[in-house]
Design a protein around this nucleic acid. Sequence first.
DNA 1: CACGACATGATACGGGTGTACCACGAGAGG
DNA 2: CCTCTCGTGGTACACCCGTATCATGTCGTG
Lengths: 201, 201
Amino acid sequence: MSVQVDHEERRRQIAEALLRIADTQGLQAASMRAVAAEAGVSLRLVQYYFTTKEGLLLDALARLGAQLQARMEQWISAAGSPPTPRGIVTAVLSCILPTDPESRRITRTYAAYYTLVLSDPEVLEKHGARLPELLEGFLTKQIRAAQEVRQIDSGKNPEMTAAGLLAMVNGLGSSVLGGQRTGDAALAILTHHLDELFRSP
Amino acid sequence: MSVQVDHEERRRQIAEALLRIADTQGLQAASMRAVAAEAGVSLRLVQYYFTTKEGLLLDALARLGAQLQARMEQWISAAGSPPTPRGIVTAVLSCILPTDPESRRITRTYAAYYTLVLSDPEVLEKHGARLPELLEGFLTKQIRAAQEVRQIDSGKNPEMTAAGLLAMVNGLGSSVLGGQRTGDAALAILTHHLDELFRSP
DNA sequence: CACGACATGATACGGGTGTACCACGAGAGG
DNA sequence: CCTCTCGTGGTACACCCGTATCATGTCGTG
C-alpha cells in the first residue's frame, strides 16, 4: 500500500457532490468542473476516481437508489409492528412523495436523471437495479395480502391497482416538484385514495 | 411593405423544428444551430425571428400546448354525442397517454420541457397558460356531473379524485416513456381504474 | 537509501454553445 | 434616382465542456 487514501470515501464524497448539484440545479449543471468545485477537489481528481463522466453519473445514480431504498425500509419499519398491509403500502407510497426535505431531494434528483434516460435509454441498461419494477411487485403482494384479510375488495386486480397507485404517486410527485401543489396537498390526495381503496365492500 | 415574407409561417416552421428535436433527442440537443439545420434555414434566421433562445423555447412551448389542447378537443368530440361524463373523462385522460405516435411525441416533448422547468422555474411564470390547472378543474366538473347522475359514488371528493386521476395518467405516461411498460398496458391500467370509479355503489 | 506505484496538480486541446457584428441584395417611398 | 429599411448570409467572439497529457509530490517496500 502507498499513500492509500480511502478510495470509497473519496468516491462517495464526489458522487454526493454530483447529487447535490443535480438536486439544486439539475443534471445539466453538473459538469465535471462544477462537481469538482462542489466536492472541494480538483478537476483531475474527479477524473481520477471516475475516469469518465458516464461512470460518475452511473455511480451517483446507484447511490441515489440505495438512499431511497434505505429510506423506504426505514419508513416501513416505522409503520409499526406487527406490520399491516395498509401500513406498509401507506409507508412506501408516502415516503416517495416529496413532503420533507430529504424526499424532496431524492425525488428532484431522480427527476433530473429521468430526462437523461429519456434522451439516452442505454444508460438505463447499464444501471442494473430496476427499482420501479421491484417496488411494483412488492406493492402487488401487499395488496393481495390485504385482499386475503378482506381489507380490500377482492374484485380489484392487484397488479393494476399497484401500478396505478405507483403511477399516481409518481405523478403527484411531479406536480409538487413543478410547483403545482404542496407536498401536503399531494399527501392528502394519496390518503384519500388509500381510504377509498381500503374500505370493506 | 418590403419583401415581407410571412413571419408567422417562418416562426412556426422554426419552432416546430425545435419541437421535433426535443421529441427525438431531448431539449439539451436543441441548440440554435441544430434547430436551424432541422428547419432548413441559416442560424442567422433563427436569431432573427427569435432574438434569444429563451424566446424560441417559450414560443415552441406555447405551440406544443396548443397542439395538445387541439388534440384533446378532438378526442372529446370523438367521444360521441351526446357526451356522457364518463366518455369525456375517458377521452381526456386516454388522449394524454402515449399510445399513438402523436401522443408519444407530445408527451415526450412535454417531458423534455419538464426538466427545464425544474432547473429554472421562472420559465413557468413567463409561460402564461397553466394547462394542468385548467385540466384538473375541467375533470373535477365532469366528475361532479357524473356524481349527480349517480354514475360515481357521491362519497368521493371530486377535486381529489380528479387530481389523483390526472397524476396517475401522468405517472403512467412517464413509465411508458421510460420503457417500463407499453402504451397499451398503461391504457389498460387506466381503464381498470375508470371501471372501478364509474360503478354504481 | 533508492525505486516505483499511487495520488494529485496544472494546463492544453478540440469542439460545441449562445450571441454579436458586418455586409449585401431587393424592393418601397421620397 | 436615391435612400432606407427589411430579410438574409457569413463569420467572429468569448466561454464552457469532457478528456488527455505532462509533471510532481509522497509514501511503502526492497
